[in-house]
Computed example of a mutant assay.
Amino acid sequence: MISYNSENDFLFGNEAQVSVWLEAVILNEKFKLGEINYIFCDDDYLHKLNLEFLEHDTLTDIISFDYTVGKIIQGDIYISTERVEDNAKDFSVPFIEELHRVMVHGILHYCGYKDKTAKDEKLMREKENYYLQLFANRQ
């Protein structure tokens, strides 16, 4: 089950479509969906989590807490809608596209993909682009 919650005034509109897509991503990566909670928030909220749990004094667009057991994907994914909005402007893409990228990014981390090295980041971007295209083709 995928749930969507908000700690700010953000309203996520296409929950059903996105849930079907993200579950397809999980199944395609040979995992099973357990329980994933997306929590949309602002920069201040996510910055506090970043300081408290990761000891990073920086803004970020996403923090994920992975509770995956074996092949069952579970976790809490916090997304700063403010960071996503700024990143969308920086990358000249629509907000919703950048939001979907960040959402699938969290899922891909749960599937074992990393992004700390240039090689890992390249593979992560390829996977994100692949799954974003799959979602676009469903529309």
Rank of each mutant, 00 (worst) to 15 (best):
I62Y: 05
H47I: 02
I72V: 14
T58W: 09
E85K: 14
Q74T: 04
H47T: 03
D57Y: 07
N50I: 00
D90V: 08
D76F: 01
Y67P: 03
L46P: 04
D90E: 15
Y45A: 02
Y78S: 08
G106A: 03
T81C: 13
L99F: 12
I62F: 06
F91D: 13
M103H: 11
D66S: 14
E85N: 13
V93Y: 12
G75Y: 07
F53A: 02
L49C: 05
N87S: 15
G70D: 07
T58R: 12
T68E: 08
T68N: 07
L108T: 11
D86G: 04
V84A: 10
V84W: 03
L46Q: 04
L99R: 12
Y45G: 01
K48Y: 08
E52P: 00
G70H: 02
L59M: 08
L99Y: 12
T60Y: 02
L51Y: 01
H47V: 02
F95L: 14
F91R: 15
D90G: 08
F65P: 00
H47D: 03
F53G: 00
E85V: 03
E52D: 09
T68W: 07
H56L: 13
T60M: 06
A88K: 09
I77L: 07
L108Y: 11
G70L: 03
K89G: 00
K89T: 10
Y67H: 02
H105Q: 13
I96K: 12
E97G: 09
Y45C: 06
L108C: 13
P94C: 12
D57Q: 07
D86E: 14
Y67L: 04
E82N: 07
I107S: 05
N87G: 07
H100G: 00
F65I: 11
G75D: 09
F95Y: 15
F95V: 15
F95K: 15
D90Q: 14
I62P: 00
